[in-house]
């Protein structure tokens, strides 16, 4: 029984983490930038969704609109914030050290944290309707929220769409080429600049989507971005920075490990996540799905 619970909780948690980490790993893979501001995209996505849902359900409106709004909110956040950041800040640090680029996004993260406080204040927002409206069903003797199942389905669809987009479309294949070898791609005439902007907007959208989808399940309050970003780091590092299959596996490992800890030994809940991250880094520094690059002398 408890193992079923671990499995279900773990997969739900993994689905959420996967959506968030996917954007992070995509941006790292293509641009070699570890985007700390991803946590802020997540938080803004959650706040935007919570606000819109609050307005929507204040009147007697159809439920389905709420779900549409979740996606609309993340799309808007991704487009606006993603474009703004990539055009305004990141292009100034291209070619600089990876750590410097990460620091620049950390600076942006700090600014956005206060921007969130300025816009939404310090009081928590609740937007539970899309989640509570679906109720819960009995699975293997456990009450499982249908919204959680929806979340898993969405994660699977997002993952599948991205996979298809990368492997079955021309743009996607070009993007894979850029991930594989940036200089070579540029030499072959791929518009790397455009690829960067597209990737970053897509990454920001995924971050915001992760936040928007979570909004109905939590109280949206200051600090949610700070928490999620380290967890997403852990997922990405475990899977291999820049690897999409790695994000799936990383999210599942972290999700299951955390669910197991919560249900079996709650005192190690957070510890266990970072223990896995440390072990993977210690034995496979490049993660489970990425490889080292040799240096020519």
């Amino acid at each position: 029984m408890i193992w079923t619970a671990i499995l279900i909780d773990g997969v739900v948690y993994a689905a959420w983490l996967f959506i968030v980490a996917l954007g992070l790993t995509l941006v790292f893979g293509v641009m070699k930038i570890l985007n700390v501001a991803h946590g802020a995209f997540y938080a803004i996505g959650a706040y935007a969704a919570a606000s819109l849902i609050g307005v929507w359900f204040a009147g007697d409106r159809p439920l389905v609109g709420g779900y549409v709004l979740l996606v609309v909110a993340s799309l808007a956040v991704g487009l606006v914030m993603g474009t703004l950041l990539e055009r305004g800040v990141l292009r100034l640090v291209y070619g600089r050290d990876e750590v410097v680029a990460a620091l620049a996004t950390y600076a942006v993260f700090l600014i956005l944290e206060d921007f969130i406080l300025l816009v939404w204040g310090t009081d928590p927002y609740f937007a539970g309707e899309p989640a509570t409206a679906l109720g819960a069903d009995d699975w293997f003797g456990l009450a499982v929220s249908n919204y959680d199942l929806l979340l898993v389905a969405v994660a699977a669809v997002v993952g599948l769409l991205l996979w298809l987009g990368l492997n079955r479309t021309r743009t996607g294949k070009l993007l894979l080429a850029v991930i594989h070898d940036r200089e070579m791609s540029a030499a072959f005439g791929i518009d790397v600049t455009l690829m960067f902007t597209m990737t970053f907007v897509l990454g920001a959208f995924l971050g915001a989507l992760g936040g928007a989808l979570t909004a109905p399940k939590i109280s949206v309050a200051p600090g949610i971005g700070v928490e999620v970003i380290v967890l997403a780091f852990a997922v990405v590092v475990i899977g291999g920075m820049g690897s999409i299959p790695g994000a799936v596996v990383g999210a599942l490992i972290v999700g299951l490990a955390r669910a197991a800890a919560v249900l079996l030994l709650p005192s190690v809940e957070l510890f266990v996540v970072y223990a896995v991250m440390t072990l993977v880094l210690a034995f496979r520094p490049y993660g489970l799905f990425a490889r080292a690059q040799a240096r020519r002398i």
Binding site: L34, F233, V237, V268, F271, V273, A275, T278, L281
Partner: peptide, 24 residues
């Protein structure tokens, strides 16, 4: 044995390990 972003990340992992221990 670590450099660059991997050095940064491993160090982060260790600090969060301690955090995870302390909060609980």
């Amino acid at each position: 044995r670590y450099r660059e972003i991997f050095f940064a990340m491993l160090s982060l992992a260790f600090s969060m390990l301690l955090y995870g221990l302390l909060v609980k």
